[in-house]
Design a protein around this nucleic acid. Structure first.
Lengths: 367, 367
DNA sequence: AACGCTCACTTGTGCGTACAACTTGAGGAT
DNA sequence: ATCCTCAAGTTGTACGCACAAGTGAGCGTT
């Protein structure tokens, strides 16, 4: 006895798909009529129609009554996967977000992918909504800037749902410690080290630090701050470190309970968590009539647009921003195409020396 | 004679869809068997199968051989409309783009809509690619910041394709003169007028102007500049007006062929196209050792983050930014829901007086 | 109680027919 | 040259039949 054979309409389907793939039938070509095929293969017209009906549904063919059946413009396109990448950021602000998005967009748009933008405002509830929203979409991959990355995350379950659906996830800018997902980050410890070492090399010994407590980046930058001190044999006084949170509104006058002016009076230099904090510090100093870098040297992070907007340009450790975005775009595409499954990239920051630390060597103005 | 009636299988389809929507048939329920329906409605089983086949394809039903036909878990999900709004901007930069996107995002995410982000880099070729890309997507509406809005647009044909597909388009920030589409813009003429009048009120008579030539906003702001002069009985000298283009790289040293320092030497105030230009002008003045506002008063537009980053804070005509984004989000949703088909909103700008024009009254420093 | 068999019922495959609706081009009438 | 009609060819709708294949409940045997 013969093995159960495939149904006739199935064989006809495969035959036609093969012809299309072999370019014997091209886009827009008229295909044999139903009657012709019925006669040629000695099959009933009904069976032909069954095969055609499925081919139409799968996007290979289309029919026009009275004219005939034709090969679709891009046969089998609908069979291909989604062409959208979900992107979740913490803020949609004027800081480094635009540069990162630009990097991601440039790479993805090149390959015909789209970006579905979402934002958490650094709140776990919003993060949950974003994830639920994207789960309903048909996305091919997910790029996430983690929300409050230093705190435990209540949305792990949702992240895992993406994984079980085979949707790759890539974290940028930071990552959750609980998850072993791919990430691309700036080497924040190194950045903190570079900033602090620069000040120490200039001869500073009493250096203040202002760091953010609820993002993992703040912890790492502080860690580099410590490392540079340790290496130089300098001690770190807790009283010179200020920690602040996302929600601190009155950051201008006191940070984490300590009045900035009191702190700065004891020091000759300060490491600011980012350019925004640096500008706020500069405003306070200006009010007091203190000059930079003569009275106080100042280093910050990120090299945002703000770093060059002030009268004294900021010495800052440049975040790779746009390059990081591009790298993230390339990586998520590779993960989708299964070229590589896992990434743990630390990008090197770069120290950019400008006016806020120039001319200060060993406490003596150098001109 | 009767009008041509709908085919039987169509009527059967609609009947079943109705029953599902009316919850008479629920997810997972087993539906009548083919034979039962055939007998009940006195239709051939073949016709029933035709209707069922389409319902399966559209996701309403699924079949299991030997068991029966069942209602799908989320019947008609694919039938629902798209929940994505295409957004096309000219740049993804640190200026007012983040605020606008934030406004749009806040409104749309509230209603469960997603943003598909695109960017033209102010080039018509890129704009074309974005539009072609979004045409292939299943978007519900389109928000566009026009590319080179003062120039004729070569992509009108693509914009019209959206309209013929019933996808509403809303322009923000400017609009193409060739198209009669909905738009939401800042009243740039009024903004130009407010900025200039403020200087005239302070006693300035020789006022320079720097404007962008290839965006329609530049034209309008200049038009307000003219209006204020006319109203005050002051003449405008062409030699005090500088036009620049998107692509001008060396804007710092000369703008449109004219050296800035030569120009500014003749004037007591300058209207700058935006905050970015204003900061560049401030840098030039700082190099020359000239002070603001004593030597030169300065007004700009947009009230971006930059306006408060410099040592002398900028007097600027605030762009509605975030409010404009929110308004755009609300409007496109109304257009999708057919609540209102057409919008032509001009939002009023607001003059914010800061250090760059303070203390200058009639040429005498007022302290 | 466990197992296997049968049978009724379901959907799947396949054949046949007929006529309706639509497209197109050829040929005739104007 | 233009318009109209009609016929041939195409897909669409609708009916009929038969048997294959999978499911599950009921029955009887073990």
């Amino acid at each position: 006895m013969l093995q159960t054979e495939k149904p006739k309409y199935q064989k006809l389907k495969e035959y036609i798909i093969q012809m299309i793939q072999a370019k014997e039938l091209n886009a827009g070509d008229k295909i044999f009529s139903e009657n012709e095929l019925a006669e040629r293969f000695d099959i009933s017209r009904h069976t032909i129609r069954q095969a055609f009906s499925e081919l139409v549904n799968e996007g290979w063919l289309y029919k026009v009554q009275g004219k005939g059946t034709f090969v679709n413009r891009e046969p089998g396109v609908r069979v291909k996967g989604a062409k959208t990448i979900g992107v979740i950021t913490t803020y949609l602000n004027d800081y480094i977000f635009p540069a990162i998005i630009r990097g991601v967009y440039d790479v993805l748009s090149e390959k015909g992918y789209n970006i579905a933008l979402n934002c958490t405002y650094n709140r776990h509830e919003k993060e949950r909504l974003c994830l639920e929203n994207l789960l309903e979409q048909n996305i091919a991959g997910l790029i996430v800037e983690p929300t409050k990355s230093a705190l435990p995350n209540p949305n792990i379950d949702l992240y895992k749902r993406f994984s079980t659906q085979g949707i790759p996830i890539l974290f940028i800018h930071g990552c959750y410690r609980e998850l072993e997902y791919s990430y691309i980050v700036e080497d924040d410890t190194e950045a903190g080290y570079m900033a602090t070492k620069h000040l120490i090399d200039l001869g500073h010994e009493r250096i203040a630090g202002i760091f953010k407590i609820d993002d993992i980046q703040g912890h790492y930058r502080f860690s580099g701050f410590q490392k540079a001190h340790l290496e130089a044999g300098l001690s770190i006084s807790d009283s010179r470190i200020i920690w602040f949170e996302t929600d601190d509104q009155d950051i201008k006058f006191k940070i984490g309970g300590t009045h900035i002016q009191d702190l700065l009076a004891q020091c000759s230099a300060v490491v600011c968590y980012n350019d925004q904090i640096a500008l706020k510090v500069m405003d306070i100093l200006r009010e007091k009539g203190l000059s930079i870098p003569d009275t106080l040297s100042l280093v910050s992070f990120d090299d945002s647009q703000l770093a060059q907007a002030s009268e004294v340009k900021l010495t800052t450790v440049a975040h790779p921003k746009e390059r990081l975005g591009e790298e993230a775009g390339r990586s998520i595409l590779n993960m989708i195409d299964r070229v590589q499954d896992y990434y743990d990239i630390k990008m090197q920051p770069e120290l950019i020396i400008r006016g806020s630390t120039e001319n200060w060597i060993g406490g003596i103005k150098n001109e």
